[in-house]
Write a protein that binds this DNA or RNA. Structure first.
Lengths: 231, 231
DNA sequence: GTCTATAACGAGATAGAC
DNA sequence: GTCTATCTCGTTATAGAC
């Protein structure tokens, strides 16, 4: 207690630094070979450590993957919140598209991390519950926009057939959006559709087909905004 | 030439059989370990062949991957066409959703093949031009539906801002849809969004969130139909 | 207590000699 | 086509430095 304020601080700092170095190197390898081939040994080798030393920082390869996933969700969420803050005074459609565009831009800037969180699952890896909360961060921003818009007049309510109502109410309860179930259900669908647009561009499905991708995407995002009732 | 009519036939038949066996085993390994770890050696081992023998059928790992991708596109396309034929006399919205549902069902039945063609790219593999045509097969079905609907009155034209018009015209020219550029552009966006919905369900993003997935999906597909102008 | 290094395990891939 | 020697991997046990 008496001696160790700084010593503890130094140790903690070193630990944080090494942890960050491991994740950085792991991200580099992710980009080069994909998540399936991420190897603790290769990371250790590149860092001049021995592989067993890594286990002080990450108890297993899967834990390292989990950390990378959490970081990716966080980084994306932060970018979305930032983009939203920058247009906080604009109308709801503009705020919506700004967040969608931020998601797209983050994905284009971090394609391998995007693939890690929204691409095909990594064989043999199963994400723990803890990633779910991190994943919701972008969603919260979109919910906020809809909630604000819903307080004002002029927002349309998306259609909700009877057969979907119970499910929509359940989803609303899970997300606690404080929005009409029809809007919440439409939001979840729009959310998935947004990632379809981003994924198609990122994974090459638009090659030789869509060239003006930014304007194409913005227009599609506006369509999604209409789909959730924004005007 | 003189002796070999039947012998050639037998040889050709054997070749087809072995090729099919190789692809089947490769698909099994795809499901188990993912495309990144697909190994010609492992396939050969499982078939009781020696790895060098495989090269008589597929000159490289990438060629085997390409064959699997082509098969997957074909299988999906066939399923979509089949589903469309079954409701050929129905209204355009019903035909549209039937094809969308067929895509979803195929994806749920063949998750690893879906991941292969619409998931994250396989590191180190780049698809040859030849896969593009196969990929378009589902798209052609959707285009047919829109073209039929467009011949009748009552189809709405999606909005098309001026800044998107040149791109929409270009896309129309590439796909040769014989549809208004606004419809073609909306179709491409809807297409990407459809795969967002399917991918989210398949890759676990709907876990603990959406439970009645079939009805949820059908409703979203109807929304996509509205987006391209179908009524 | 915290870390790193050595060594080893069982499993699998790989290269080359034969 | 086969065999073997040599790699890789994730992971653990152990010992010793700070």
């Amino acid at each position: 207690m008496t001696t160790s304020r700084t010593a503890q601080g130094a140790r903690a700092r070193a630990r944080i630094e090494v942890t960050a170095a491991i994740k950085d190197e792991a991200r580099r390898q992710l980009a080069a070979d994909g998540a399936a081939k991420l190897s603790l040994r290769a990371v250790a080798r590149e860092l001049g450590m021995v592989s067993s030393a890594l286990y002080r920082y990450f108890p297993s390869r899967d834990d390292l993957l989990t950390a990378l996933i959490m970081d990716a969700y966080d980084s994306l969420g932060e970018r979305a919140e930032e983009a939203h803050r920058a247009v906080a005074d604009a109308g709801p459609v503009r705020r919506w598209t700004a967040v969608c565009e931020a998601v797209r831009e983050w994905a284009l800037a971090h394609p391998h991390e995007y693939a890690l969180i929204y691409g095909s699952p990594v064989p043999g890896y199963s994400a723990p519950e803890t990633t779910v909360a991190a994943a919701a961060r972008v969603g919260r921003v979109l919910i906020d926009i809809l909630r604000d818009a819903h307080r004002e007049p002029g927002m349309a309510e998306p259609p909700l057939p009877d057969e979907l109502r119970p499910e929509a109410e359940r989803i609303e309860a899970v997300l606690a959006t404080d929005l009409p179930p029809a809007v919440t259900a439409a939001l979840v669908a729009a959310w998935a559709q947004l990632y379809g647009l981003v994924g198609f561009e990122l994974f090459g499905q638009f090659d030789r087909l869509v060239e003006e991708r930014e304007v194409f995407f913005r227009h599609a995002a506006e369509g999604l905004a209409r789909g959730v009732g924004l005007r």
